[in-house]
Nucleic acid binder design. Structure first.
Lengths: 217, 217
DNA sequence: TAGATTGTTAATCGATTAACAATC
DNA sequence: TAGATTGTTAATCGATTAACAATC
């Protein structure tokens, strides 16, 4: 795998932070400063950044612009991935409207739904197409990424259509485990599991007062 | 802390799976079966379940209904948390409409926004109120959980209002680190960091073909 | 040169997994 | 009883942190 999952997850954080620095006109930064602001230990940041292949200068630190570029290249944000989204409900609409995704290498090119009311509509400049067309279109347009924002009941079925259309990675917002061939990359965005730890911590708070934690994500 | 974060995150998965079993009329289950279906090793499941305080019977396994109840109690899903949501945009609307949250101990009781167009509207049965009223209402209604679905620029400011209203935990969907007192529980739902690992894996796929992984979440 | 900071190797810590004893 | 499964203690593995050398 190369890079540990936690490091991978921290890279966008650095990216975001570095962009703020850049906007302020700061063009050089040390790990100790990043660590101070992001609440991480400098060594960890250094390790994380090394995966991107960047090298810093002792005493000076890293060049902000270079570092931003290195992270973007490493994460593949330069070559934009085109994606299909299935499920033009509230959540789907929210994602379709997320202009900033394009900065992160993602462009949602079309939406799909089964609801005849929705088909043919334009949402945030993207056409809603009938689900039957997904597999065929994915093949013809060489789409490799699928996003599922449909109800849990339909998710498995949608995933199968995606796979049959040659889609290689699925970003799944439905609260179900998808059953797909092992070579397909599945990334579950499970709000319930997220909510679970939050509510557990909150419940703890009221049982054992003054216990503090602050852990995020 | 008691329970490791990864175990905590797996509990809702078990919960979901067990409910499926229950619906099928199965009322006893072994860790090996769960592991087979959820792609986890039995020992790990046993460890995870032990945190909920449940005990199984050798040879038989666990009683499904008991297990479900144990997880729910452990996660605090029995005492429903009331929450305020700020940012009645697409994502906010999606969350407001998520009926199933109530099963997971969460009830969003009101939405807030600064947009005069939105204030006064009803979204999925919840009134959109002006943001200025948040702190005061949170105190009077003893709300302890706040959800931020507003743009990144406003998130910090909203968080401060929440804290001043006595809110103890923030579920943050805006892509920024919030600066709040250490005793406040912050849980970041960072789509970009999620997207980062997905796009990295996908990029890898095209660089080094036939490398497979399948890791989720 | 002295001091700050990077880069790297070793130690620590926590979660997962393996081995095995206890129990129905 | 034999076999399956739980519960627990020990070993392993991976990520984080500490210590230190290299460098500007």
């Amino acid at each position: 795998m190369g890079i540990p999952q936690p490091s991978l997850n921290r890279l966008p954080q650095y990216h975001h932070y570095l962009n703020q620095l850049k906007a302020k006109g700061i063009n050089t930064v040390s790990c100790s400063l990043i660590g101070l602001d992001l609440n991480l230990v400098p060594v960890q940041i250094r390790k994380d950044l090394q995966y991107t292949g960047i090298v810093g200068k002792p005493k000076t630190g890293y060049a902000v612009a270079e570092l931003i570029a290195a992270i973007e290249t490493f994460l593949g944000w330069n070559n934009v991935q085109e994606a299909f989204l299935v499920g033009a409900g509230n959540l789907g609409t929210a994602l379709l409207g997320h202009e900033r995704f394009s900065t992160f290498g993602l462009r949602i090119v079309a939406a799909f739904d089964t609801d005849p009311e929705k088909i043919g509509q334009w949402i945030h400049g993207k056409m809603v197409l009938p689900l039957e067309k997904l597999a065929d279109l994915a093949k013809r347009m060489s789409i490799h990424l699928g996003i599922i924002t449909a109800p849990a009941e339909c998710a498995q079925w949608i995933a199968e259509k995606m796979v049959s259309g040659g889609i290689q990675a699925i970003w799944n917002f439905a609260p179900v485990r998808l059953n797909v061939p092992p070579e397909i990359i599945v990334h579950n965005e499970d709000l319930y599991s997220s909510l679970a730890s939050l509510s557990w911590k909150l419940a703890q708070r009221f049982n054992i007062p003054f216990q503090q934690d602050g852990g995020s994500n």
